[in-house]
């Protein structure tokens, strides 16, 4: 083997990245790179298997650290105003039902300012995959308390500790419905990748929460400043389970953050539902129907 071949010429996923925009803005120890890696490997797999055409994919993000992801991915996409990734993605789907929008955004964007859009998308079983990175705080703005911040946690806006209770976002979405609801953490990139592979080519609403590490902004205020410290602290409480009831799903920074698949159904999504009422010319071409048939086999 000549020495030439040993020199790395790039990453196998470079084809899905706007490499000229790298390096990214994410801090050392941030979990978002892990999330992006799992997502791109899942996309690469699904494209290689002919399940999806990368031209169909539209990656929609909101504002925040996670929001910057759409700028790095070499796919159609949008970087929308704060909280509006879900309605924008719904519009993308309505505008061309052959497309496959994927929302990837943070917990502040999805569960706080965009919370209303999230619950209504789940209620409608809208044909949409939402991946929510949960870093337990508002990081890009400097570490303020968020809807997922543990009670008692010190943040820049809770200097005496967080007096509020957090949302268990995955459990909330599971309680509303949607065809697929899962929660992983960045400690389990393979499980996350497999989950995305499963959830992307599906009909209806799919939601994956990814509990992520933010040592630089969140960790520093709660005593886990270095990447390994926060990584290990979080790993102590994440637990993969197969919950039998919603009450088995726990989101507690002190005791347990339940991981796993919380909902796995295959009910017709919104687009199919309107096709039962009106014979649109695109009804035979929506990818979700094709996927549902594949899943039934």
């Amino acid at each position: 083997m000549s020495q030439q071949k040993l020199i790395a010429r790039g990453h196998p996923l470079d084809k899905l990245l706007r490499t000229e925009r790298l390096p990214h803005i994410w801090c050392p120890g941030c979990g978002l790179g892990t999330l992006l890696g799992s997502f791109l490997r899942a996309v690469d797999y699904l494209v290689s298997k002919g399940v999806i055409d990368e031209k169909q994919l539209v990656v929609v993000t909101g504002i925040g650290c996670t929001g910057r992801l759409s700028a790095y991915v070499k796919l159609d996409g949008a970087h929308t105003p704060h909280g509006r990734a879900i309605p924008y993605a719904i519009g993308v789907k309505l505008g061309n039902p052959r497309l496959v929008p994927v929302v990837i955004s943070g917990d502040g964007d999805i569960a706080s300012i965009g919370g209303n859009h999230l619950i209504h998308a789940a209620r409608r079983n809208m044909d949409l995959l939402v991946i929510m990175a949960n870093n337990l705080n508002y990081a890009l703005t400097g570490g303020q308390m968020g809807p997922t911040t543990p009670p008692g946690a010190y943040t820049t806006t809770t200097p005496r500790g967080n007096p509020e209770r957090p949302f268990d976002v995955a459990r909330m979405v599971a309680s509303i419905g949607g065809n697929y609801v899962a929660r992983w953490s960045i400690h389990y990139p393979v499980q996350l990748e497999e989950s995305i592979k499963k959830a992307l080519p599906r009909r209806g609403f799919r939601f994956i929460e990814v509990v992520s590490t933010c040592p630089e902004i969140f960790g520093r205020h709660v005593g886990y400043r270095t990447p390994p410290e926060l990584y290990d602290r979080l790993k102590k409480v994440v637990r993969i389970k197969k919950p039998r009831a919603l009450d088995d799903i726990v989101y507690d920074w002190e005791k347990e953050i339940t991981l796993g698949v919380f909902r796995d159904e295959d009910e017709p999504g919104y687009m199919e539902s309107i096709c039962r009422l009106y014979s649109y010319e695109w009804c035979r071409e929506i990818p979700e129907v094709k996927w549902a048939r594949r899943l039934a086999k």
Binding site: I86, P87, I90, G91, V92, L94, G95, H117
Partner: peptide, 21 residues
């Protein structure tokens, strides 16, 4: 499509135009 609020409505139509509608 009936949105959950006007904020959703306007963002949805922006997305729809990028899809070509």
């Amino acid at each position: 499509f009936q949105a959950e609020d006007e904020i959703a409505a306007i963002n949805a139509i922006i997305g729809a135009t990028y899809s070509g509608a």
